[in-house]
Design a binder for these strands. Structure first.
Length: 508
RNA sequence: GGUCCGUUCGUCUAACGGUUAGGACGCCAGGUUUUCAUCCUGGUAAUAGGGGUUCGAUUCCCCUACGGACUACCA
């Protein structure tokens, strides 16, 4: 078997969305699984759609999720350059080769002329096709004399080079996911291979580059399936049939609600990110949210994405990247499109946050604290994390569920006050305060024992006492266990909060 | 419209001719609990429809329906 070499080949027309990220991920997993190479090629042959910043965005996104390239625009490699606009001289010679062997031809029809032909067909409820049926009635080197063609070319007239699709042939594409896909050549059209601006179209460029870069497997989105027969034809015409890569067309990612391909606009409309990283549109300034900024861990993100369209055949659902590499196989990629489920994405993240070590969690929380201008001892941050981590679904929840540890409550939740505050409450609090003061080892176990025996001895309600304590410590009815809160807060701060509340309410 | 691809619980999916059609998310109920979560237990819910082939179809074939992609000098 030849060396596995696969590529991720996005065009820099904007941010990569999760469908594209998944394509990159599957390519990466496949490459690593087979000890092969993974490379990043930028397909920017359409300069009209170029978006500044998109290329860097793509690179940063893949770096964030832990995908490393062996070769690519950003790191070079033995087949450089890896940006198609830097390879423009290469493509022309192959177009000329096709011209020479009669599998391509010059065409001089203007865009306006073609537009009119399409519109005319449309009114007759037909589809205009520049192909075997029509090419002999159009302005090209098939219908014009050699001298006329020469004259046109020399006069600097705009031209394109189109592929000459054969008639009455069945073209077969072998697909690793779908099996055999065959198409009648009469239904294909004479696609433009080389544009009048001197750059190739995707069809020519991807075939030439995949061949030159010795790509062994083309793993890409299903939207390319209809043009795969053309690519097969091109390999044949170029004489590279024996070195043609194998194809695998991945099913699409669909919107969570209704149907249709997940698109860049869907995300914030439906309340979840579609992009790995936040993106600011350079033209409009519009901001689209990203998984990273929303508080997802990259490990959770790729785990979720990997299982969207692929499964290991076992009931295992949690995979680290190295486990994904080990378990991945293209045969276990499904054929049908997958609807993206934001709830499941959250579940994965929640799971991964729970798996994180206290040290790691503390680092994440400390970053948020620093942003808020709060500076505290790391040991304290760790303690906080150890009692709050399991209730955090997204990273920002680490703060949302623990802020009262760093800032004493300024106001008390009115509803909770009404429910639990009684005239005798201040006295009760002072009593508990006295008991707490006596505890030498301020551990949550000791605190718990002391409070419980106090409740028992005085025949008080557990809920009444605990909820009141909770109220004065955190300002509402949320957070971890009361004993844990007291222990983490420490004796001094706990007593202060209890006194403050007792005094404040005494005056009411 | 044409071509191609697809179709198992609401969602992601397993079952490569023989299973009480399995798991996960969600949802519901119960348990644990001082709140909210976590956690544990249980429940809910699917083979699009119709024909074949076969002793036997989720699984193989055909038709229909539905969905999607493609149909540019875009990728």
């Amino acid at each position: 078997m030849r060396e596995v070499r696969v590529r991720f080949a996005p065009s820099p027309t904007g941010p990569l969305h999760i469908g594209g990220v998944r394509t990159a991920l599957y390519n990466y997993l496949f490459a690593k699984k087979h000890k092969g190479k993974f490379l990043l090629r930028i397909e920017d042959t359409d300069q009209t759609r170029f978006v500044p910043g998109a290329e860097d965005y793509i690179i940063e996104s893949l770096k964030w999720i832990g995908i490393h390239f062996d070769e690519g625009v950003h790191i070079g490699g033995p087949f450089a350059p890896y940006r198609q606009s830097d390879r423009r001289e290469i493509y022309h010679q192959y177009a000329l080769q096709l011209l020479k062997n009669g599998t391509a031809y010059y065409a001089f029809d203007t865009p306006e002329e073609l537009d009119r032909l399409r519109k005319d067909s449309e009114t007759r409820k037909e589809t205009f096709q520049y192909g075997p049926q029509t090419r002999l009635g159009l302005k090209n080197s098939l219908t014009m004399s050699e001298t006329d063609v020469k004259a046109m070319l020399e006069s600097g007239e705009h031209y394109v080079i189109r592929v000459k699709i054969p008639e009455n042939e069945t073209i077969v594409v072998q697909d690793l996911i779908r099996g055999e896909v065959s198409v009648d050549s009469n239904l294909l059209d004479d696609k433009v291979l080389f544009k009048s601006d001197g750059l190739p179209t995707y069809h020519l460029a991807n075939v030439v580059d995949d061949y030159l870069m010795k790509i062994s497997h083309v793993i890409r989105g299903e939207e390319w399936l209809p043009s795969a027969p053309l690519h097969v034809l091109l390999y044949r015409y170029l004489g590279w049939e024996t070195e043609m890569p194998e194809f695998a067309h991945l099913p699409l990612l669909l919107k969570p609600e209704g149907n249709g391909k997940l698109s860049k606009r869907d995300g914030d409309r439906l309340g979840f990110p579609v992009f790995p990283l936040q993106w600011t549109d350079p033209k409009t300034g519009d901001i689209s949210s990203g998984y990273r900024e929303t508080g997802y861990l990259p490990e959770a993100f790729i785990n979720m994405l990997a299982l969207l369209g692929w499964n290991p055949g076992t009931e295992q659902e949690i995979f680290r990247m190295d486990q994904l590499i080990e378990a991945f196989s293209i045969e276990r990629v499904g054929k049908s499109g997958s609807k993206f489920d934001p709830e499941k994405a959250k579940w994965f993240n929640h799971h991964y946050i729970k798996m994180l070590s206290v040290d790691h969690l503390a680092l994440l929380l400390n970053k948020i604290l620093t942003e808020k201008g709060i500076e505290v001892d790391m040991e304290f941050v760790k303690k906080v994390c150890s009692v709050t981590s399991e209730r955090a679904v997204l990273i920002p929840d680490l703060w949302e569920h623990s802020s009262f540890f760093f800032q004493a409550p300024k106001v008390y939740d009115e509803k909770v006050v009404q429910k639990f505050w009684k005239p005798e409450t201040p006295a009760l609090l002072e009593k508990i305060g006295l008991l707490l003061r006596e505890i030498s080892d301020f551990s949550s176990e000791n605190i718990d024992a002391v409070i419980k025996s106090f409740i028992f001895e005085n025949s008080l309600g557990m809920g009444q006492v605990m909820n009141t304590l909770r109220l004065v410590l955190v300002g509402g009815s949320f957070g971890p266990g009361v004993a844990s809160i007291l222990s983490v807060l420490g004796k001094q701060e706990s007593l202060q909060r209890i006194h403050k509340a007792a005094n404040q309410f005494m005056q009411l």
